[in-house]
Design a protein around this nucleic acid. Structure first.
Lengths: 231, 231
DNA sequence: GTCTATAGTCGGATAGAC
DNA sequence: GTCTATCCGACTATAGAC
């Protein structure tokens, strides 16, 4: 007996979503402090007082924006990540030799990094980046949301793949250093974007440039993993 | 006949410096928008109206802060960089074989990266980072100052060392991709600091942690360079 | 749930005395 | 060069009608 579930009070729900969407854009463009609730309300086509009603205030809206970011990021990178994870469920690595380990774990690692890089330099992440980097500098409750839902699961999986490829415990310091130096290779193209564009002479990081970046990261990570596995 | 040179109007000069110093701290902690000229003046022990007098306004002070950052960064990384550069003045790379190139260019590259990493994760860069990352997202005139005086020269030298080690033109796309993926390995530990600390279980990135990071980056870059030079 | 109106604050800039 | 005093705009939050 299939029937359409009614969203609880449709009007309010629509307003909420519009405000979050607008806030994402304005917070992302101007940063938390420079963004005004007036501008957000205007962009959402909603009344400024409704921010107080729906989210309690500017900070509450900011937190709701991070929930939204976590949703979207989760949709984009976690499916790839968890499908890979499932593939290796409960598989021991002790029995494999060096070449077998690399052959098994490196390809999915490189695929996951491709996805991560694409999301990171993509259009949509531009606004998120400013907010996320702000949280990295002075973490608030929003960082907890982000870490629990995205950073944690993501680093877990990349760490497991790295550990599988080079051998060792997934949470050992050595693997974690490998992990962050690996992710950092992609992160630069977002965090140091202006410097990259200026030196490269690029106007944007479009599909062509993305492919070049992904290729370089692939080669780098392959080289690193082979070197680290070689002892 | 040695005599003390009088700074041009001593009082004003002292006030200027105090304001810049205070602004560095407050802009760095709170960001440009959240920082107030009142708080900066208070921290400097100066009068709020003097910001207008000396710098024309908040934005002028912000720019002056970047000049200061460029000064300090220049003192910390450029000496190492230029001493290395002098060492390779006018040296051609065509005549060297693979092993000779690596032996010649890799060690100074790794030394320079050590310095870069140390400065980046160091205490003093904490405040700068927020401001610099903001400029990477939406570059203003302050970015021009920073790029011309620091990022440009630094990337030039690292690019030359990489080009020397793997062979090729220093400004080719391939070298530039190598360059940014290399620098990015250090950048993460500043830009994604909160995530690093949480996953690593570190309280701070002190001398011990810095050494571990530097070691990993050394091994990574060595592996990458050897792989890239190998064709 | 949505609106108007406004209270209450705080910010950057600046005039003008010293 | 430095200070006090103040202007004026912009902001967030909220009271209260609908």
């Amino acid at each position: 007996m299939p029937f359409q579930r009614l969203p609880d009070s449709p009007r309010g729900h629509i307003t909420r979503e519009a405000l979050i969407q607008a806030a994402l854009g304005i917070f992302g463009r101007d940063g938390f402090d420079a963004a005004s609730t007036r501008a957000i309300a205007a962009a959402a086509g909603a009344n400024q007082a409704l921010i107080g009603y729906h989210f309690g205030g500017k900070e509450g809206l900011y937190l709701a924006v991070f929930e939204h970011i976590a949703d979207r990021l989760g949709e984009q990178v976690l499916p790839v990540a968890t499908s890979i994870k499932a593939q290796f469920q409960g598989r021991g690595t002790r029995t494999l030799n060096r070449e077998a380990r690399i052959g098994l774990y490196l390809p999915p690692l490189l695929r996951l990094l491709d996805t991560f890089t694409a999301v990171l330099v993509g259009e949509e992440a531009a606004g998120w980046a400013r907010l996320i980097l702000r949280e990295q500098h002075s973490p608030s409750r929003a960082f907890d949301v982000l870490y629990a839902r995205i950073m944690g699961p993501l680093t877990d999986i990349v760490g497991q793949l790295l550990a599988g490829a080079v051998g060792g415990a997934p949470d050992a310091t050595r693997i974690n250093l490998l992990l962050f130096t690996t992710l950092g290779q992609a992160l630069t193209f977002r965090a140091a974007r202006a410097s990259v564009l200026r030196r490269m002479g690029w106007q944007e990081i479009g599909p062509r440039e993305l492919a070049a970046v992904q290729g370089q990261i692939r080669r780098n990570v392959a080289a690193i993993v082979r070197a680290e596995a070689g002892r």
